[in-house]
Amino acid sequence: MFFSLPHPQAIADYVTTRLIQLIQKKPNAVLGLATGSTMEPIYEQFCRQVAKQDVNVSELTTFNLDEYIGLGADHPQSYHYYMRQYLFNRLAFAQHRTFLPDGLCGDLQEQCERYSRLILEAGGIDLQLLGIGSNGHIGFNEPGTPFASRTHVVALSEQTRIDNGRFFDSMDEVPTQAITLGLQDIFEAKEIVLVATGTNKAQIMADLYHSPVDEAMPASIVKAHPHAMIIVDEAAAALLPAGACKPLLQLA
């Protein structure tokens, strides 16, 4: 369940290889995508290798985990903007098959219901990428979110707003709500890869390791998934017990 690699670039190399193998096996795969600094080296390496290996991504369908309410697609801190910057504008994705929640949607409830329905209609997510927040959230599913949740509107916790505040000019600009894929939507993915890197993730990874599968720790749902990997670099693994992680380089 817990695996380690030395540094973020090694993780980026491994995840990229996994993604490309999936695409070569299933060119019309459905990918669940995440944002944030943890994903940046992964997307950078993925773009590099897709171009180098001439991998066709035009048949892929993608669903992003979340979006801030109140930010339009062209806002520099929106996840639409992030995805265009780090992935979609760099490769030949089919725009009509890249899905993200709309932060300016007038009918949020209808959009939430439709988003989860679209995933089911696409055949479900083949591989879901996840990061993890310092309070254990995945997507924007804060502690206490029901495991049975579908796409929904969430009030962001103060800790999440503080963590994300570094991307905004002031805390007043940090959104207070977001649309997020639900924990049930995430759990239904055929495969899950959760990535954590850096010393700032060491404590939450130790908490996750010791936590039971409990709604107080949203990311703990991944531990119940039959085909999930939790990948950490040496810094994020610093507080884990000895032997808790299997080095990925030893895998066949």
Rank of each mutant, 00 (worst) to 15 (best):
Phe63Gly: 12
Phe63His: 11
Asn64Met: 09
Asn64Asp: 08
Glu67Lys: 01
Ile69Gln: 07
Gly70Phe: 03
Leu71Asp: 00
Leu71Gly: 02
Gly72Trp: 01
Ala73Glu: 14
Asp74Ile: 00
Pro76Ile: 02
Pro76Met: 04
Pro76Arg: 07
Gln77Glu: 15
Ser78Glu: 05
Tyr79Asp: 09
His80Pro: 11
His80Lys: 07
Tyr81Glu: 10
Tyr81Cys: 06
Tyr81Gln: 09
Tyr82Ala: 01
Tyr82Phe: 15
Met83Asn: 03
Arg84Thr: 07
Tyr86Asn: 14
Tyr86Lys: 15
Tyr86Val: 14
Tyr86Glu: 07
Leu87Phe: 06
Leu87Lys: 08
Phe88Arg: 00
Asn89Cys: 04
Asn89Leu: 01
Arg90Leu: 08
Ala92Arg: 13
Ala92Gln: 10
Ala92Val: 07
His96Trp: 01
Thr98Pro: 07
Phe99Glu: 13
Pro101Ala: 07
Gly103Lys: 07
Leu104Ala: 08
Leu104Val: 08
Cys105Ala: 15
Gly106Phe: 03
Asp107Asn: 15
Gln109Gly: 13
Gln109Trp: 09
Glu110Asn: 13
Glu110Ser: 15
Glu113Arg: 15
Glu113Phe: 12
Arg114Met: 12
Arg114Cys: 08
Tyr115His: 09
Tyr115Gly: 07
Tyr115Phe: 15
Ser116Asn: 14
Ser116Leu: 08
Leu118His: 11
Leu118Pro: 10
Leu120Ala: 13
Glu121Trp: 13
Glu121Asn: 14
Ala122Glu: 12
Ala122Leu: 08
Ala122Arg: 03
Gly123Lys: 07
Gly124Ile: 09
Ile125Trp: 11
Asp126Ala: 05
Leu129Arg: 06
Leu129Trp: 12
Leu129His: 10
Ile132His: 03
Ile132Arg: 02
Gly133His: 04
Ser134Tyr: 03
Ser134Arg: 13
Asn135Arg: 00
Asn135Leu: 05
His137Lys: 01
Ile138Ala: 04
Asn141Tyr: 13
Glu142Ser: 01
Glu142Lys: 08
Pro143Glu: 03
Gly144Glu: 13
Gly144Leu: 09
Thr145Ala: 11
Pro146Met: 01
Phe147Gly: 12
Ser149Ile: 11
His152Asn: 08
Val153Trp: 10
Val153Cys: 13
Val153Leu: 15
Val154Ala: 06
Leu156Cys: 07
Leu156Asp: 00
Ser157Ile: 04
Thr160Arg: 00
Thr160Glu: 03
Arg161Ser: 05
Asp163Arg: 00
Asn164Met: 02
Asn164Pro: 10
Gly165Asp: 02
Phe168Ala: 03
Asp169Phe: 00
Ser170Glu: 00
Ser170Cys: 10
Met171Leu: 11
Asp172His: 15
Val174Ser: 01
Val174Tyr: 06
Gln177Ser: 05
Gln177Pro: 00
Ile179Gly: 04
Gly182Lys: 11
Gly182Pro: 02
Gly182Arg: 10
Gln184Ile: 07
Gln184Phe: 11
Asp185Met: 05
Ile186Gly: 07
